[in-house]
């Protein structure tokens, strides 16, 4: 039989683990997407709306 403190500790541990996992996933996802966008931009692929008038592509 666990003591009450152990149940409290387990609850907070699960909460910290879940929230940390969620935050890391959202931040990590954002970083990878930005990396992909930068790589595409470096390769010269631009959004049509971001292209300057008279740009190279027609």
């Amino acid at each position: 039989m666990m003591s009450h403190a152990a149940y409290v500790l387990a609850s907070y541990a699960v909460a910290v683990a879940t929230v940390t996992g969620l935050v890391l996933w959202v931040v990590g996802d954002g970083r990878s997407r930005q990396r992909e966008l930068k790589a595409l931009e470096a390769a010269g692929v631009r959004r049509r709306s971001a292209e300057a008038p008279g740009g190279e592509s027609k």
């Binding site: 996802d29 992909e36 595409l40 390769a43 959004r47």
Partner: peptide, 23 residues
């Protein structure tokens, strides 16, 4: 905070997809 950040990620993801198709 998480919802706004995740929405931003999703917009970026769709941008990457459309840029790849365009390329």
């Amino acid at each position: 905070s998480l919802h706004i950040a995740a929405m931003r990620n999703e917009i970026w993801r769709r941008r990457v997809d459309s840029l790849r198709r365009q390329a």
